[in-house]
Amino acid sequence: MSSTATFDAEISEPPYDSRLFLTKLDQLSTNEFGIGFVYSVLELLARHYHLVDVVVVVGDDSLGMQSFRLDRKKVSSDSLVTVPGVFSEPDVVPDVVKDVVRSVCQLALSLHVARHGAAHDRLTNIANRRYFDSALRTAAVQSARYGWRFTLVLADVNGYQAMSDQVGPSVSDNLLRTFGYALRQSVRSGDTAARIGGDEFGVILWNAERAEVSAFTDRLRALPVAGAEQIDFTIGTATSPRDSTDPTELYRIAAARLDEKKSAKPQ
């Protein structure tokens, strides 16, 4: 079987041409080199070798061992596999191809995790400080240039430190995670919510002044979260361009207002 550009029209038959498969693999689009790519590889593998089903198991430092199954409606039974490898039914895939598939899938997963981790806080899965600083700079530039309004909201979870000291980090981490979910549910599409410190969160609310910020905090207080206690938090805000169009100054103003409110609260 020759390596032409008409792969889709070709139907492989035993003995399967592994070089042809590897050529097809090479031609898979790498625009979205992540979990979706893993399933594309499994699909290609299944098509080429006429597989009923195939599972690839790969390990990742942060996720642990992960199984990916072509038939995504059947995640259970063969998910008990906890050794890295490619397992197919029927088992007709040559070892060299299995090794390549496993390596490629491992790389795709690792890149996805790295890409995601570069912009997200691992605990709460909202944006991290790096992403937030960049978003705030961009927002400030746009506000200065076009006069677009936005409000920077800084939020502190009250009592986090005391709770962490009392009950340990795993319980207090749940508090932060829960607050992160609440933030994600409360912001509008296009806004940015981030965890910017231990118990500090930042939000960029576009086209928002007092009324919109108030609506946002109302939504936040009304949440979260089934089964969890209400989370007490304090916010400080600064609005661009009214207060400033400099991101550092906006941050300073919001932080000062936050500190002022916190010190006014009964301890």
Binding site: I35, G64, Q66, R69, R72, K73, T82, N125
Partner: peptide, 25 residues
């Protein structure tokens, strides 16, 4: 928010403690 694709959804589920596999219909 910064990401809302199905891939990121699956990644977030896989990040939960103890999750070995995720099936999606």
């Amino acid at each position: 928010m910064i990401s809302s694709s199905e891939e990121d959804f699956e990644l977030e589920l896989r990040s939960l403690p103890g999750v070995l596999n995720v099936g999606i219909s």
